[in-house]
Design a protein around this nucleic acid. Sequence first.
DNA 1: AATATTTGAATTAACGTTAATCTTGACATA
DNA 2: TATGTCAAGATTAACGTTAATTCAAATATT
Lengths: 334, 334
Amino acid sequence: MRTTLKTIAKATGFSINTVSRVLRNDTRISNETSVLIKSKAEELGYIPDALASSMRNPRTKTIGVISADLSNPFFSEVIKGIEEKAEESGYQMLMGNNEESEEKEKHLVKLFLSRKVEGFIIMPSHGKGSSLYDFYAALPVPYIFAGRYIDGLENHSVLHNDEEGEKSVFEYLLSAGHRNILYLSGPEHISNTFDRDMGMRKAYENHSIAPDSRYIFHLPGHPEDGYQAVNTAINKGLPFTAIACFNDILAMGAMKSLQENDLSVPRDVEVIGYDNLLFSQFMQPSLSTVDVPKHRLGYVAMEILENHINNPDLDFRTENLPVRLIFRDSTQER
Amino acid sequence: MRTTLKTIAKATGFSINTVSRVLRNDTRISNETSVLIKSKAEELGYIPDALASSMRNPRTKTIGVISADLSNPFFSEVIKGIEEKAEESGYQMLMGNNEESEEKEKHLVKLFLSRKVEGFIIMPSHGKGSSLYDFYAALPVPYIFAGRYIDGLENHSVLHNDEEGEKSVFEYLLSAGHRNILYLSGPEHISNTFDRDMGMRKAYENHSIAPDSRYIFHLPGHPEDGYQAVNTAINKGLPFTAIACFNDILAMGAMKSLQENDLSVPRDVEVIGYDNLLFSQFMQPSLSTVDVPKHRLGYVAMEILENHINNPDLDFRTENLPVRLIFRDSTQER
DNA sequence: AATATTTGAATTAACGTTAATCTTGACATA
DNA sequence: TATGTCAAGATTAACGTTAATTCAAATATT
């Protein structure tokens, strides 16, 4: 039989309530009793039942974290940031993967609500044209979208300035004289793609140039996608002198293709990634990229969520973290 | 006010119990009643309280997952495997990070027990000389160690044949004639280091050669460690013609150092990693490495755990997944 | 017609905890 | 002495479920 408060109460002769209060360090208990009960609890290997406790005490100290892909190094950095702050604040994480499906995402949110999470941090699968607006708007607990947003719910997001980031990439490339820039963009249903495309367009606009749609690829974002896209461009005889990538992983594939086609980076082609994943500085040549504060993104998301949990009337507002273009060896500028 | 079974009972005129049975699709309910109650539940936006339910029904359908480092791509692949099988079996994951500390690990296990997890999958921080043997041996729920083991609890582990894997690396290198092999090994407190070192030694033994301890480095396993270790070897004038690494991440750092020192891979130095992370095939040159079935490791761990949960009398036994040396461009052999 | 079975549901008692309200005895105060 | 205060603890009633038991009416069986 499991040791419960009742067991300890019987063993010590005190009431269940007194035992409960001792173990919660509640007041109005003599020191003698407290020591006695605590030692008995220890002796019996008492493990508190957090679920039973949550029945009277609505604070479950649990949050739900839903990511697009647990194995993606971008998300895992973000999740580590969340975990760090959650740990500091005494929260536990229920975790799930939406597999880039809105249905799955909704299902997970419901499941987690059932477990009485006090809030959510979500990396939504679909942002642009999401069908989940109504669903989220009606959620009974606070929620923060990390790194992405859902149309109409922007104020629930912690973002990293995607538009500014991609704009700085294209400002650099266009100013350096490039006129044939391959742009390996991301999936169209996520907000980041939309914002970065916008940044790209603004940079072209600043230079009074119209972007050429033949140079823009919308890709899922895996290494093979980058590899194939560059192969395709080369095979079609599309001339280019620079490649801007939606993420470092695409850049990894792109560089592989360039290498196989005997194109030198950065002499023949300059390449710029996005995200600044750990490995990008160790690539050969090391990858110029836009640094996204992934760990901080997670940490801040949890900070904000905690704020809203403790303060249900607080208004939500978009947080936008700064990004920074980092020059390494895959560009001429250093 | 939250909608509970009571709310629905009042709204429909049936008893709480009847409502409960309808929503659990229990028997002995007329179809008419069932439809009525279900539609009312839907209408009122009823969200079942899984915690309250767990008070009577001991199946919480939750497991605890504790990893050494959430942001490490090796672990995140494993976790994805766990998540996939967990999802299939209807389990949710409570997740935490032991930060390579046994104290933190123990704390997390207790916390999760409090939440009534039905079992654990743990990537323990310390395996060799762990102080947690007694603690784990007394755990009241089944637990599986993924990818590592704790001395005396080997039967709770799903492993990948570390000894065989590293042995195959050294068999290749020694057979190819290398006699000065830098071995960038891992942290001494984890079982993988111990087993791979053993594999290395067996290969040397097969060739009747005594390994030279000046060539063996025990490192934490970050890219900088590999980078520094190779720099150090070069600066000390230690001659070498091959590098075997405890993981791909070390190899990444090692290759960077070789590159900076104008040593060609694989012509001057052959390099072999371990783990076969996604990016290793995209490195320049692509990295020869030992493939570890990371996703499968997680998936199998969850399969086994579920088995033990459903079958408490089942004996634990070590599972050892096969590994395979993959030749790419960082070795002469292809 | 008397009895047994079946169906559909209500009642009751938990699960382990916590919060609110009582109780008791010791001591202090006027 | 009568009354008040306080400390230390006990009692009771929840929280939202589920399982076991009970009940009443309808139907079937002899």
